[in-house]
């Protein structure tokens, strides 16, 4: 950890060798497009490198911290204007789940595979909040469900997720 803080090249090389695949998995689950995923993974490591000072071990494991950086970088990308423009040319079906339909047409890898085991409506809620970064308020508006219900259902989905993962 100390050598990471000193931004030692070997330490980062080690970090990359051990965690890039896991982080690439989460990036791919969110941005889908491989080319963009490559750019996002680069951003992820730039962010890890920049923010390593602010990592606080008392608040969680290093991997959890990196996973959240990967998720945030991916969501930033899909919410960027450039990404939205690039998606305009693609078929509508891929974007249907963003609008809140019942069956996300996504590659079922990693966490997403776990998601498929959730009940339909819970799956949509977790997909929107975790993989697309919508706030509870945004989900409430988009799906026309009361905010309290969104929160309760996401809680319930998270509880189920826990048992599925463990």
């Amino acid at each position: 950890m100390a050598s990471l803080r000193q931004r030692n090249e070997k330490a980062f090389s080690y970090l990359y060798d051990n965690y890039s695949s896991a982080l690439y998995g989460i990036v791919n689950a969110i941005v889908v497009d491989k080319e963009i995923a490559n750019d996002v993974l680069q951003n992820v490591f730039v962010n890890i490198w920049k923010k390593i000072e602010s990592y606080d071990a008392s608040k969680g494991r290093l991997f959890t911290w990196m996973l959240n950086i990967a998720r945030n970088a991916s969501i930033d990308e899909i919410r960027s204007k450039g990404f939205k423009d690039s998606q305009k040319n693609q078929s509508l079906s891929e974007n249907v789940d963003i609008a809140g339909s019942t069956s996300p047409a996504i590659d079922d890898v990693g966490l997403k595979k776990v998601l498929t085991k959730l009940k339909g409506d819970l799956r949509v809620l977790v997909d929107m909040s975790y993989f697309q970064g919508f706030t509870h308020e945004e989900i409430s508006k988009a799906l026309n469900i009361p905010l309290g219900t969104v929160k309760t259902r996401i809680r319930s989905a998270l509880i189920q997720l826990r048992t599925m993962i463990q």
Binding site: S21, A22, R61, R162
Partner: peptide
């Protein structure tokens, strides 16, 4: 910590090599 480890393990199992 237990959930973090489970999540990490799960992510490792589903890793995609860049």
């Amino acid at each position: 910590t237990a959930f973090e480890i489970a999540l990490e393990k799960q992510a490792m199992e589903n890793a995609v090599a860049p």
